[in-house]
């Protein structure tokens, strides 16, 4: 079923596990268990090992994420520039905690160790866009920009509560 992914890798080459998982995730947005069973057979590794690898690295997801992924940088430079407050504001606006996805599956908040854009700290990224040197006041407008026509449930609530 996923032969087109496997074709780029030698069968039973254990070192191809992580690249294959990365490709699967880029297709599905996460690592579906069914596909991982196929991967297990192709690379010749037990499923437990694949689960172990999937839960070891930050990038792998076992469940689908929201449409928009907000990554809050928690690097040192961002930390000293109060990225914790940014996170708090994003969490409040969306009504979810870091690592969670909004009920309408619009947004997922993730923490990232350091995006390496320390010179413009504090930084968040939404999907592939960087937003540097921002303050909590910028959060509502950034989120609005990505929420599309349909408003995220969290935002509506936030609007009601007057936080936007």
């Amino acid at each position: 079923m996923h032969q087109y992914i496997f074709d780029n890798y030698t069968k039973n080459d254990k070192s191809s596990l992580i690249p294959i998982m990365q490709e699967v995730q880029s297709v599905y947005g996460y690592l579906p268990e069914k596909v991982m069973k196929e991967v297990s057979g192709y690379v010749g590794l037990p499923l437990s090992r694949i689960y172990g690898v999937a839960t070891f690295y930050n990038m792998f997801r076992l469940a689908p994420l929201g449409e928009n992924i907000i990554k809050v940088c928690r690097g040192t430079a961002c930390h000293v520039k109060n990225s914790a407050n940014l996170l708090f504001a994003i969490e409040n606006t969306l009504g979810i905690k870091a690592g969670e996805t909004t009920k309408d599956r619009k947004f997922t908040i993730e923490l990232v160790n350091c995006i390496g854009a320390c010179s413009i700290a504090p930084v968040i990224t939404v999907n592939d866009d960087y937003h540097g040197r921002i303050t909590t006041k910028d959060i509502p407008s950034i989120i609005k920009k990505y929420s599309g026509k349909q408003k995220a449930a969290g935002i509506e609530k936030a609007e009601e509560a007057g936080t936007v």
């Binding site: 254990k14 070192s15 998982m21 690898v53 070891f56 690295y57 930050n58 160790n113």
Partner: peptide
């Protein structure tokens, strides 16, 4: 080789494990 997000993989033996397709 693209890393998959683990600080410890900067350590040499962990990096090797990661390239080999293991937990770093």
């Amino acid at each position: 080789k693209k890393g998959a997000g683990a600080f410890v993989c900067g350590e040499e033996t962990a990096l090797i494990a990661s390239i080999e397709g293991k937990r770093g």
